[in-house]
Design a protein around this nucleic acid. Structure first.
Lengths: 157, 157
DNA sequence: CGCGAATACTTCGTACGCGAAGTATTCAGC
DNA sequence: GCTGAATACTTCGCGTACGAAGTATTCGCG
């Protein structure tokens, strides 16, 4: 009966591959950003702001899956470089909106690479069926992880 | 003809989900490590050394997909905490082997969580067919990314 | 043998990335 | 309308994470 160890090897291979795809895409994005004097996260922020318009710092944090304290630092450095501006909301003075400067907007236009671009490119080469299968299975996984995460949060109270 | 925008939305969803699964698994691993006074990478290193025995710093770097300079720092801190030892190879004096101390080995036994554990757990709930499909498609993606990466490296010379 | 290239690792500077604690502002309920 | 809880953001300390430059050692080849 090799089923168990086979299954385990398959799981390892899947985890290994996901980690590879993620880290490699990230590395290549970083490399592309570098060529215009940006870091990976900074490129992501610029593209988000260019696409969605001004965003509050919290919204930005959610979008790039980072803590507010992390994004504060990223915005600090981008502000120093004249790529973005901080603007207090008048309706809720706790909120800070981040806005692209002309320089920041121009830079966004200059860089055609999207975050995780390489990953997207390669995904686009999959057959229609493979794409659908992949999304279906991944969604299943995501749903279950969300369930587990919620359980842990609840249990800790 | 909505095919194009549909397809694009699907790609976005896939990328989004992969990023979610990866970052969430990482976050939860970090949390588990925290409970025994370790960081995420440190837990990973301890588990690797406990499983494979002494490893050179370079081997360790490859395994955790980080640069040597990063791992040097991680090992510095672990050595300071008495979890590992550095040992010069006698056959090649450039090489440094990293070895678990009894304290480090004990800690590894104490923590039952593997790196990316949550991801593994959830993967294990997939049907046999889904698992096979997922691995098949991901392998395809990985192969193509490897191809692209190799192309870029070659073209830059 | 001898010496330039390659390899293994370290050091340094900068940028994330996080959690805990702090500040300012708004909200909720009385 | 007052006050304690909640929310948005910042600050701080620490640990990655990387690339470039530096050191020590080994390899390759004439």
């Amino acid at each position: 009966m090799l089923q168990d160890s086979d299954a385990k090897a398959e799981l390892d291979a899947i985890v290994e591959t996901i980690v590879y795809l993620y880290t490699e895409s990230r590395r290549l994005t970083k490399q592309a950003a570098r060529e215009v004097g940006l870091t990976g996260p900074q490129l992501t922020v610029i593209k988000l702001l260019d696409t969605f318009g001004d965003l509050s710092l919290s919204t930005l944090s959610e979008r790039i899956r980072a803590q507010n304290s992390t994004v504060t630092g990223i915005i600090d450095r981008m502000e120093r470089e004249g790529l973005v501006l901080r603007e207090r909301s008048t309706s809720d003075r706790r909120v800070v909106y981040i806005r692209l400067t002309p320089k920041g907007r121009q830079l966004s236009k200059d860089v055609e690479v999207q975050p995780m671009e390489i990953f997207r490119d390669v995904l686009a080469t999959l057959s229609r069926d493979d794409t659908k299968d992949l999304l279906r299975i991944l969604s299943k996984l995501q749903k279950r992880v969300r369930g587990l995460v919620k359980d842990r949060e609840t249990e800790g109270r």
